[in-house]
Amino acid sequence: MIAWWQILLLTLYAGYQILDELNWYTCAGSAVFSGMITGLIMGDLQTGLFIGGSMQLTVLGVGTFGGASRIDANSGTLVATAFAVGAGMNPETALAAIGVPVAAILVYTDIAGRFANTFFGHMCDADIEKMNWGAYNVHYLLGAVSWMLSRMIPVFLALAFGQGLVEGITTALNGDWKWLGDGLSVAGGALPAVGFAILLRYLPVKKHVAYLLLGFVVAALFGTAFTSIMNLNANIVAVNGALGKGAVDMVGMFNNMSMLAIAIIGFALSLLYYKNNQRPVAAAGAAEGDDDDEL
């Protein structure tokens, strides 16, 4: 169940986040932030973080290129998390079955909001002719209202009236439609691949393909090693428990691979690249000097 005050808070956040994303940009408009806030409001932070994180990776490459409308991952995460917690849906299924469709549908309200602002833009032109600056401020700032409503209305409608529908879907996916439910949770795992591929389309991959390979292999090897060690640790704990040797608790001694550490390797490589790239100018000068000596 989603309580009325939860719907209210989530709707307000949906309006706030788009202004944040457009203007002061603290990352509150991102999917992963939306997952955290929605998780907190719904009382299940872990589910929120998981859905938000997955959605963030799915849309990683979908930037704001040329001001085009894009899939609204923030609102998709919000609605998916709310229902995953409220209707007890598995997070991966909620991501694929609710998050992605909602995010795609909200492209249309985004377009409607941007159209409404065309109207306000013309009112601003008229205010300049009258040199009525008070009216200019009002008409300009009304644009913020259409931006907010383009998120708040669909999010509110989905949360307030979608509950029965989503509960029905959840029951079906756990019952007769289990194959679809399983498929959707596979999709939840596969979707980030799209985000990475889009991103590679925008980055100079051909020029830097060596770094792509390096990043992949370093993370693949370390990731596998860390997972194996954690499994081993879990097994040792289980065996100790079975032998009655008491709690030789090694849980917590071994953590997941730290992505921050991997990022630091990436930063180091980028730093080296930057330094080496500045060198050719000096090197060329030195080479010329050598030539002169030889001649």
Partner: peptide
């Protein structure tokens, strides 16, 4: 120069993310 160096890190990270975050 900065954009070029930053894109080295970007490409590296995408490689690492492919290895850690696509769960199939």
């Amino acid at each position: 120069a900065l954009t070029d160096a930053a894109s080295v890190m970007g490409v590296f990270m995408v490689g690492a993310l492919v290895a850690t975050n696509v769960g199939i």
